[in-house]
Each structure stands twice: as structure tokens, then as C-alpha cells.
Design a protein around this nucleic acid. Structure first.
Length: 257
DNA sequence: ATGTCGAGCAAAGCTCGA
């Protein structure tokens, strides 16, 4: 079973790219982020025509997450991260697909830092810690997939020098990611590629960063501990980033046996 | 500051968020 995560950076503007990738790689589950569209403009007809059922939580212009399942309709379990009823951003969706609980996560970027956006990022992370711990208590195979907006270590970026003030590299962001892993979650990409320090998922549009492979690893697939023995493979569909009208992220994926 | 995108608003270039 192949589960992927892909920050599409505008699902309508990049729909041909998304459909092409689905056709080429046929993931069983695809978690999408940054839909940047209201619910009523989600391109469900094109996605169904590609062979996928879908759940989505949209928002006009910003955020937005979805879960696609090949040949079936994902069963919605949760919409929105618990812990703050005043938080209206569409950043979390959870569904059951073939016995696996899958979450599509779009963690706040947090820039500029310090400031209210960074505070929101850390508060969102704290809510994720609480919910992720509750998920582990249920002992159901679970995958938390998405754009975490965290570069876990300096081994996950081409060169941290020009990003030192960025929210993605702050010690607080990294500590929050480590705290999540310490609950027992397995970072599938890093576990499968322990010594590959050029495996990235995001290349900024600015300053020719794709051509220079000046990337960051910020999209992650976290597996519940029971899925550890089922980890067969994991990777990044890097070439997708190099295409016309590409998102600034590439899809990342895991195969479970 | 740099400089690249999508999307909204509204009718073209600006603003915002990333």
C-alpha cells in the first residue's frame, strides 16, 4: 500500500500536474495540502475521473487539505485538529482507508518569527502533540502525512546559512518535531534513507533554488510504531518539481507491506 | 532587500501568504 503526501500549492492552478502525477505513480492514498480553494471549487469530477474518491477541507485562497483514495471513498474520521474552536484554518483532515488511519496535515508556516504567526505555529504543534498521543492510545495503524513546515535537522537542508531566521529552522520548531517523534512516531523517509542528506521535498521558487538543488526536507510521513515492520520503501518523486507550472513541493511517499 | 509563485479583487496591477 502506497501512501503519498503532496503540497500542491493551489489545486486548480496545478490540476494537470496533479492528475499527471496520480496517473504515473498511482498511490493508493494521496494526502494533499495547500488546496487554496473553497470547498465548492474543489475539482472532484476530475479526481473521480482519475479513479480516486476524495475528502477535502477547503478554504478560499489559503490552506486547505484533502485525502484521496484510489478506487474507494475515504471514510472521514475527523475534520480539524481538536483543542481550539476559534482556529478556523483548514489544516487537518483524518480518514480511514483500508484499515489505516491517515491524516493530511498542513502545519502553519510561522513566518515571520518572532511574532503572532510563529506563536500560532507552536500552539498548533502543541495541539498536534496532544492529538497524536491520543491516536497512539487507540493502537490503530496510523500515518500522519503532510507539510510540517519544519526542517528537522541541518542534515535536512542544503545549507542552513540563509535560513537561520526562518520559522522552519527555529530551535522551537525542531524541538516540537522531536517531541512528536519521541511519542514513538517513525519518520519514514529518514528511516528508509538514513544517510541521504540531499533528499528534499521543497525548493523555493526564489533564487534558482531548484536548479541548484537548494532544497529542504519539510514534508514528512510519520508512521505509528506498529507500522515500523511494514515499512517497505519510502521516497520523493523529485522530478515532479522540475516540470512546467510545478508546485514548489515534490510528493513524498511510503510503501507499506 | 533580494525575487517567484497562486489567488483575490476586479478588470490591471496591487496585496497577501508562502
Amino acid at each position: 500500500m502506497k501512501i503519498a503526501t503532496y503540497n500542491v500549492n493551489g489545486i486548480n492552478g496545478r490540476l494537470p500536474r496533479l492528475l499527471e502525477w496520480l496517473e504515473e505513480t498511482r498511490p493508493d492514498v494521496a494526502c494533499l495540502q495547500e488546496l487554496k480553494t473553497a470547498d465548492e471549487r474543489f475539482p472532484i469530477d476530475a479526481i473521480r475521473a482519475a479513479g480516486y474518491g476524495a475528502l477535502w477541507s477547503g478554504q478560499k485562497a489559503y490552506n486547505g487539505v484533502a485525502i484521496l483514495a484510489r478506487g474507494s471513498d475515504p471514510v472521514e474520521v475527523r475534520r480539524g485538529l481538536p483543542g481550539d474552536p476559534t482556529d478556523l484554518h483548514s489544516r487537518y483532515l483524518e480518514a480511514a482507508v483500508e484499515g489505516i488511519l491517515v491524516a493530511s496535515i498542513y502545519l502553519p508556516n510561522g513566518n515571520p518569527q518572532p511574532g503572532p504567526k510563529f506563536d500560532y505555529k507552536l500552539a498548533w504543534f502543541a495541539r498536534l502533540h496532544a492529538h497524536a498521543a491520543a491516536l497512539l492510545e487507540r493502537s490503530q495503524p496510523t500515518v500522519l502525512a503532510g507539510d510540517y513546515n519544519v526542517v528537522p535537522t541541518d542534515r535536512d537542508i542544503y545549507n542552513p546559512a540563509s535560513w537561520l531566521d526562518d520559522a522552519l529552522l527555529q530551535p522551537e520548531s525542531r524541538e516540537a518535531y522531536r517531541t512528536l517523534l519521541a511519542q514513538g512516531w517513525i519518520d519514514a523517509i529518514r528511516t528508509r534513507h538514513p544517510d541521504d542528506f540531499t533528499i528534499y521535498t521543497f525548493w523555493d521558487y526564489l533564487r534558482n533554488r531548484w536548479a541548484r538543488n537548494a532544497g529542504l526536507r519539510i514534508d514528512h510521513l510519520l508512521l505509528s510504531p506498529d507500522l515500523g515492520p511494514r515499512l517497505v520503501d519510502a521516497g520523493v518523486d523529485r522530478e515532479v518539481r522540475g516540470r512546467e507550472k510545478a508546485s514548489d513541493h515534490a510528493p513524498a511517499w511510503v510503501v507499506l507491506g
